Simulated scan of single mutants.
Amino acid sequence: MRVLIVHNILWAHYKSSVFQALQQLVDKQINVDMKVLQIARNERSRAGIETTANTDGETTAAPAYQYNYELLFDRFAEDIGVVERTRALLQRAKAYKPDVINLTGYYDPAQLMLLVWAKRRGIRVIIQNESTVADHERGGWKERLKRWIFSQCDGFFCFGSSSADYLIQLGVRPEQILLRKSAVDNNALLSAYQRALPTRLAQQKALGLCANNFVFVGRLIDFKNLPSLINAFAEARRQSIESAGWGLIMLGDGPQYDALIRQVANLNLSDWVKILPGRPWFKVPDVLALANVLVLPSRSEPWGLVVNEAMACGMPVLVSNRCGCVQDLVHDGQNGLVFDPDQPAQLTRSLLRFMQNEVNAAQMGQLSQRIIAPYAPEMVAQEMLDGFKKIV
């Protein structure tokens, strides 16, 4: 069995950890081979966060993942035309002669051309789906096109139950869904988090942070719903006499930065809300170690991998019910709390429950680690390999 995987960008570390685990499984198999075609090195919007500088001035590179891949274009994904992508994918596929192809998604015309090419030659096709019903408005010709695309596929790898449910609504048979998980490098993240914990108090003091903190990690963009998070935090501070020791950390870059800084100043929260510049994924645990609870308040989110990252570090999570991961990862009242992003009072109340010690945060964090354990790269890779075998 020859497996060809098409992926968009080499930078996507969470996929690389799965591909490495899959490669290790494949290497133990007889008559099984795999190759990953990485179309581009990175996206322009994520440029500059592959490495970062330590406090001593040394540059730390990202962990290296080992698997059989070819980088088709050593430039940004946005700079690669459809014709270029199509020609390169078809050329490599013809040369490799796969039995099954795993495509990244349904939105790239070049990969759809590869789908048509494969179907004409009897090659099995598995497509990855991250989308859910809730993350965008659904309907019209786009949904009809997706129905046709999915009808041409033999199997599906989904980010979770919500994305699987969406496919079933579009006519996919439940038995065609071969995977309902997403993974990050749980072990690498936890190791980095544990290394950072001993310096927590010193780093909090150096950055002017509170002893207890909520933390958001992600791009500072509209659908992340960050103005509402700041307002909810301000209201929670107003309502609780226990709020003095609590702050809010926002880790990321994006077009809303200036507006958020102004909002923080206008609410007189500059001593309690800190916006820190974005950093590579393998340095994010350094900031998680300065906080107590992750908050993801998005109005739209296909999954929310930062929730995996925080849970791998043993943190409780506050997550919007519009995030695809909620159905699988967040057990409301057990390892975190779920809220409606269109109901600000719900978010305020969730923040207050932690500020006022109405929940057992340590116990929630321990449960987070137990829940996220099956969402490890090794587990996801095994299910992918089983799926390839079933389809072929």
Rank of each mutant, 00 (worst) to 15 (best):
R2L: 02
V6S: 02
H7M: 06
L10H: 13
W11R: 15
K15L: 15
V18M: 11
A21H: 04
A21W: 02
L22N: 04
Q24M: 07
K28S: 15
I30R: 14
D33A: 15
M34V: 08
L37A: 06
Q38E: 15
I39W: 05
A40N: 12
A40C: 12
E43F: 11
S45A: 04
G48P: 06
G48K: 07
G48V: 12
T52G: 10
T52V: 09
N54A: 08
T60M: 11
A62R: 10
Y65K: 05
E70T: 15
L71T: 04
L72M: 14
D74S: 10
D74Q: 02
G81D: 12
V83D: 01
R85M: 14
L89D: 03
L90G: 08
P98S: 09
V100Y: 05
T104Y: 14
Y106R: 05
M113L: 08
L115Q: 12
L115R: 12
W117E: 01
W117V: 09
A118P: 01
R120N: 13
I123Q: 08
R124L: 04
R124V: 03
I126D: 00
E130D: 14
H136F: 14
R138L: 00
W141R: 14
R144W: 12
R144C: 07
F150S: 03
C153F: 09
C153M: 10
F156K: 06
S162I: 02
S163F: 10
L167G: 06
V172W: 06
I177D: 07
L179Q: 05
K181L: 07
Q194M: 12
P198Q: 11
P198G: 08
Q204Y: 11
K205V: 14
L209V: 06
C210D: 04
A211R: 14
V215T: 00
D222V: 13
K224S: 04
P227F: 06
N231C: 13
A232E: 07
F233D: 12
A234Y: 05
A234C: 07
E235F: 07
S240D: 09
S240I: 08
S243V: 00
A244P: 02
W246V: 01
G247H: 02
G252F: 03
G252M: 00
Q256D: 15
D258G: 00
A259P: 00
L260H: 04
V264H: 05
L269G: 11
R279T: 15
R279M: 08
W281F: 01
W281Y: 08
D286K: 00
A289S: 10
N292I: 00
V295C: 05
S298G: 12
L305Q: 03
E309G: 08
M311T: 04
A312R: 02
V317G: 05
R322C: 02
C323I: 01
V326D: 01
Q327R: 09
Q327A: 15
V330E: 02
G333E: 08
L337V: 15
V338E: 03
F339V: 06
P341S: 13
D342C: 08
P344G: 11
A345H: 10
L352E: 03
R353M: 10
Q356N: 13
Q356T: 09
N357I: 00
N357E: 14
A361I: 01
L367Q: 13
Q369I: 01
E383T: 05
K389M: 04
